[in-house]
Design a protein around this nucleic acid. Structure first.
Length: 221
DNA sequence: ATCCCGAGGG
DNA sequence: CCCTCTGGAT
């Protein structure tokens, strides 16, 4: 599938193909945005941290009760990790995430007035927040342009032969070179949705894929 | 490279 | 059973 290597293609043709893919994504996923439930940048940050190696569905089943008990950074900062664990146990990686979230909330209160900083380095300095989570929160909460690369975006970039890089940061840089800046945040969300529902890891639904005409890895069935 | 980790799909 | 899920820290 994606391991067979991409056909040789000039940069110009590749960029044209990327723009065709972008148009198809706009048609298929108009107004694509995060599916994580949240009512504030803080809640989006928490939900995004929880979403690491977990499904959005499982996160959305846990966060309503979690946010009812700990609605903001101040409330979460005063909790102990063991108090948080029961709310997120079913998500997986729950001990690490509970510990990170409490430490994260403390740092928000102590260093950022309880608010989510709009700065990538400040976000990445928070426990449990790496490049991907920081890029997602900046884009979804504050409209800062950027293409975060998660498992879905990485897989699709490879299958679509839009990047042959391996690290998320390099894949993101490749995609940002191919798409107009004003479409970066949309492209991220649309690629995630497409990866989740159509171009799945195990059994991609190529016959139903609107990107198939532009995809070197497409298969019949 | 390895660990963290539960739940759902195939 | 094995693989995957909007990764991050060590």
């Amino acid at each position: 599938m994606e391991g067979v290597g991409c056909p040789k293609e000039g940069q110009k043709a590749k960029k044209r193909r990327a723009l065709a893919i972008l148009e198809a994504l706009k048609a298929a996923y108009p107004g694509a945005k995060t599916e994580l439930k949240h009512n504030s940048p803080f809640q989006l940050l928490v939900a995004t941290v929880l979403s690491a190696q977990a499904t959005d569905k499982s996160v959305n089943e846990a966060t309503p009760a979690l946010f009812a008990r700990f609605p903001d950074a101040k409330a979460l900062a005063e909790a102990r990790p063991e108090e948080v664990e029961p709310y997120i146990r079913r998500i997986g990686l729950y001990r690490t995430k509970a510990r990170n979230l409490v430490a994260l909330a403390k740092r928000l209160v102590e260093a950022h007035g309880g608010e989510v900083p709009r700065d990538k380095r400040a976000l990445m300095a928070l426990p449990g927040v790496g490049w991907k989570t920081a890029t997602v929160v900046l884009g979804a909460a504050f409209g800062v342009p950027g293409i975060a690369v998660d498992t879905h975006v990485a897989r699709l970039a490879q299958r679509l032969c839009l990047s042959e890089a391996k690290s998320p940061e390099k894949i993101g840089a490749d995609l940002e070179r191919l798409f107009p800046k004003e479409d970066w945040v949309f492209a991220h969300h649309a690629l995630v949705l497409h990866g989740r529902y159509v171009c799945t890891a195990r059994k991609p639904r190529c016959p139903a894929c609107p990107l198939a005409p532009h995809c070197p890895s497409r298969r019949e069935g």
